[in-house]
Design a protein around this nucleic acid. Structure first.
Lengths: 353, 353
DNA sequence: AGCCGTCATGTTAGCGAAAACATCGCGCCT
DNA sequence: AGGCGCGATGTTTTCGCTAACATGACGGCT
């Protein structure tokens, strides 16, 4: 298609084609300043005709500051990670910033990390759990003058922006959904107390019960650790109760999957004899059978938002020093699949042999 | 630490500090041509002292060609994807090439993709499954003159380089391991026939049986589809046999997990009463209980190798047109966890009630 | 002894885009 | 009516680095 087989068209080629100066083309590309509509259209036509796309490298070079941000993670589940990566990569290329991805070695030495970040000229960092909940990490970052935004952190950080999902509300809606289905005895499997999100999910459960005027039965609450193994124990305990729940709401999908396994082990049909719901919408939720009804956390959206915020903060540094961190709360979605149903008419009846 | 609070040090600062010209610094950085050891050390010292790191943007700009490669995926599991991303991102930044990550919309229109790639000035593509197994995709890419390397493809592509793992050998070793444990009746759950890797894993199983002089019992072979649900059916079928296997080797972890679930549902202990092994080492393998003995596919290494190959091909284009595609086979690793054990002394004995 | 190749290093000229500054034309205000 | 201001566009310079070429010193060869 090209006149010459040689190189990709540059902004100068476009300018020539459109009969304007390169600067005008640049303005059109960046949508800046005033350009007459007629001129804009001409330039756009030239761009389309030549199949021009700006060189990211040249842009970064000329644009003054070269922004490099880093997604620093230590130990999230891979599904969480890949969502995170997808979202942040996309948005990073969108803003034309470099995105490094860094895995923190296990004995996490804050100084070592900082030294590395300094060395790699990282301007800003995205911190997913569990790093975002480490006060020393946060403090060290602040002292080093590196911008950060926490993602799904337990606590709202003091000096940084944050992106979160409303765990409490999500759990409340899920519980409300269970109540609407007709369940009255709803078991809850708590998460690892070290993670605050588990706590907030529990609060949502409690609140929804109160909303519905249902009593909070302590015996229906089992402690879990967020992992499958603990979910096994918790479900075992719940189903051993003299009057077992008709539904189990677990704090994450792994534990919910464990509850399904235990139920099947006892010959219970899910959801016929027992409704099981999870939280997070990890791939596990759709690999097991029946597929789990769960809460979908918009991880890639959160990552996108985090990049946006970080870039805004970073670019803003030059403009003004207003620097107020923002805190955004993203929408979750309750996704209904096949593990929930109304309780059997006579909850205490035996499943058919 | 910096003299001025202003900007990051440039190659010129380093040159001044070391008392040489910028070009010499550039040569040291790129490890090119002959630089006297003494000079090299001086420059290195200056680099360290200033904490200098080269600007990727400037490098790409000056370096002539700006290489952009793309990881094009359609539908892999997220764990596979995140490994892929980690490896390729790391290596891409290592080579200072841009890495775009592109998800293909479901109704995969090859032309649309090509148009997009052209537009985004992508020079080379990494193709994981299932895209790498689409002949039309491969043909279209070749016709468009875009370089590609397939990753874990079923067939060795004609015109592109490829990265693979030896599925056949891995399955053979796993089976051999099971035999060494004392198992004689080893069930096999095949994968979706559409994927060739499943076929090659099956071949490995057959070969290992032959190695051990064990008969190939057709009744012990169940067809699966690579998903959990199909694993449930396959395991059910296998355990319903008048003389059930003492071990089940599933073609992937999802189906192995299903087999564990079925075993538990029947009151069978894993691995006491039944050994279950998987393949792939997905996160699922370590979330369920007991954790699965499986084959670890070095996905991130494969991604790294893919990037290396692609960059070499792309840069080589300028140098010479030798252009012979290479095909590399990476090592797998058999990872033993808690789902395998020697069979019970009397295999036909009932599990204790 | 003089010439030339070769190694080690310096100099110049961009790469493609955007910032900063310059220009030009036009309508509006006093 | 003259100047002022501003909107639309052009020119120049700059970003950090490397390719290509230039230089200079040194040693082996005839």
């Amino acid at each position: 298609m090209d006149h010459k087989d040689s190189r990709a068209p540059t902004i100068i080629d476009v300018a020539r084609q459109a009969g304007v100066s390169p600067m005008t083309v640049s303005r059109v590309i960046n949508g800046k300043q005033a350009v007459r509509p007629a001129t804009r259209e001409a330039v756009q036509a030239a761009i389309d005709a030549l199949g021009y796309a700006p060189s990211a490298a040249a842009r970064a070079l000329a644009g003054g500051e070269e922004i490099r941000i880093c997604l620093l993670f230590s130990n999230p589940s891979t599904s969480f990670l890949s969502e995170l990566l997808m979202g942040s990569l996309e948005q990073a290329s969108h803003h034309n910033v470099m995105l490094a991805v860094e895995k923190l070695a296990e004995p996490l030495s804050v100084e070592a990390v900082l030294a590395h970040l300094k060395h790699a000229r990282i301007n800003g960092i995205i911190l997913p759990p569990p790093l975002c909940d480490s006060p020393e990490m946060l403090a060290a970052l602040r002292d080093a003058g590196i911008r950060a935004v926490t993602l799904a952190a337990s606590h709202r950080p003091d000096h940084f922006s944050s992106i979160n999902m409303d765990d409490r509300l999500a759990a409340r809606e899920m519980t409300r959904h269970l109540v609407a289905l007709g369940h009255r005895r709803i078991g809850f499997v708590k998460g690892n107390p070290a993670y605050n999100s588990g706590q907030r999910r529990f609060e949502g459960y409690v609140a929804a019960l109160a909303d519905a005027g249902l009593p909070l039965d302590e015996t229906l609450i089992a402690q879990g650790l967020f992992n499958y193994r603990s979910g096994l124990d918790a479900a075992e305990h719940l189903l051993d109760l003299p009057e077992p729940p008709t539904a189990i709401f677990a704090c994450n999908d792994d534990m919910a999957a464990a509850a399904v396994a235990i139920a099947h082990g006892r010959g219970l049909d899910v959801p016929g004899d027992l409704t099981v719901c999870g939280f997070d919408d990890t791939p596990l939720a759709t690999t097991i059978w029946p597929e789990l009804t769960t809460v979908h956390q918009p991880i890639s959206d959160m990552a996108r938002a985090a990049v946006d915020l970080l870039v805004r903060d970073l670019r803003g540094q030059r403009d003004d020093a207003a620097d107020e961190p923002s805190h955004v709360l993203l929408d979750f979605k309750l996704v209904r699949r096949q593990s929930d149903a109304a309780p059997r008419r006579r909850p205490r009846g035996r499943p058919k042999a």
